[in-house]
């Protein structure tokens, strides 16, 4: 039995989510192989080969794979799927985009966003915005799975010495084409991998006011997140959104500032180790999950915290 992990990368380097996914693959058992499909991926491939617990790295390098288009990436995965009992990818925007396509072509169901492995065919996954944990068993021959990365500790990025094998790369489907990409530039840690997150909600009041979180995030070395209300109001960019339909995070420390705590937001952060809430409404539901709550005006409290850190 072998397990295939689809690496998340930007063509140059492996993203940390890959290491969490390898950890989930190890819990299933069997040899773990990693597929690095992209364009000019030799650097990413050697990083994958160095990850602990990887038996083999498969490399597919072509122009058609450079932008991770679901149509082309799915064909590449399907070309080698026959050799595997399980195919895993992290629940990132790439993994969520491509894996159901792979599953449907194999005529199997997909298990989304697993948070636990009970056995080779039984897994745990959250449903209803994380309010219910379902234990599910798949009867399909191949298990196609996306992994909630925050639920698995990453394997070590070094120490492994997997063999690297080149594959014939899949061609272009001709049905879709990449046009452009606008990535937000940020010097802060990546939201899903950050150890500390400072998050703002509607209580912040405006896009300008959101900068009140910057000094706090700087002092804590934190990433900045936002609630859906703040994103919808245009205070913060979309990819900062934490919640059921945004990013799922589980940092050591999550500081919720001016966030009321709707269930859709809690779904994205309630597995954080320590939650701090700053809100002027003592009845806000966020205080129901916060380890430490401070009732007060964020415009007074946040600068005070910064001054005293």
């Amino acid at each position: 039995m072998s397990v295939l992990v689809i690496a998340e990368h930007d063509n140059q380097t492996i993203k940390p989510a890959t290491l969490n996914t390898i950890a989930a693959a190890q819990k299933i058992g069997g040899d773990v192989h990693v597929l690095v499909a992209g364009k000019g991926v030799s650097g990413a491939a050697s990083q994958a080969a160095a990850a602990a617990g990887v038996a083999k790295v498969l490399v597919a390098d072509s122009d058609a794979l450079g932008d991770q288009l679901a149509e082309n990436l799915a064909s590449q995965i399907l070309a080698i799927a026959g050799a595997y009992s399980h195919i895993l990818a992290p629940s990132t925007s790439v993994g969520k985009n491509v894996m159901p396509r792979v599953a449907a072509k194999l005529d199997v169901a997909q298990l989304s966003d697993i948070i636990g492995v009970e056995s080779a065919d039984t897994f745990q996954r959250p449903i209803y915005a994380g309010n219910v944990i379902a234990t599910v068993q798949s009867s399909d021959a191949v298990k196609v799975i996306t992994v909630r990365t925050t639920a698995f500790d990453p394997v070590a990025a070094t120490g492994g010495s997997a063999a690297v094998e080149n594959l014939a790369a899949a061609g272009d489907s001709g049905k879709s084409a990449f046009v452009s990409r606008e990535l937000a530039k940020s010097d802060r840690p990546e939201l899903t991998a950050a150890g500390t997150i400072v998050s703002g909600g509607r209580g912040i009041g405006s896009a300008e006011n959101f900068s009140i979180l910057n000094p706090l995030a700087d002092k804590l070395g934190a990433a900045i997140g936002a609630s859906r209300a703040a994103v919808d109001a245009g205070y913060a960019p979309n990819d900062w959104q934490v919640g059921q339909t945004g990013k799922i995070v589980a940092p050591q420390l999550y500081v919720a500032v001016g966030i009321s705590g709707a269930i859709q937001h809690l779904a994205g952060m309630k597995d954080s180790k320590v939650i701090v809430a700053v809100n002027k409404d003592p009845e806000a539901p966020i205080f129901g999950v916060a380890d430490y709550g401070l009732v007060g005006d964020l415009f007074e409290v946040v600068p005070q915290i910064v001054a005293k850190l």
Partner: peptide
């Protein structure tokens, strides 16, 4: 194709405290 064996509540967080000021926090 997928059988739901059981459902359970997620682990609940232990009750937190409200702190009076920034210094205590």
């Amino acid at each position: 194709r997928i059988k739901m064996l059981k459902v359970s509540d997620p682990p609940s967080r232990s009750a937190g405290i409200t702190v009076p000021d920034v210094d205590t926090l």
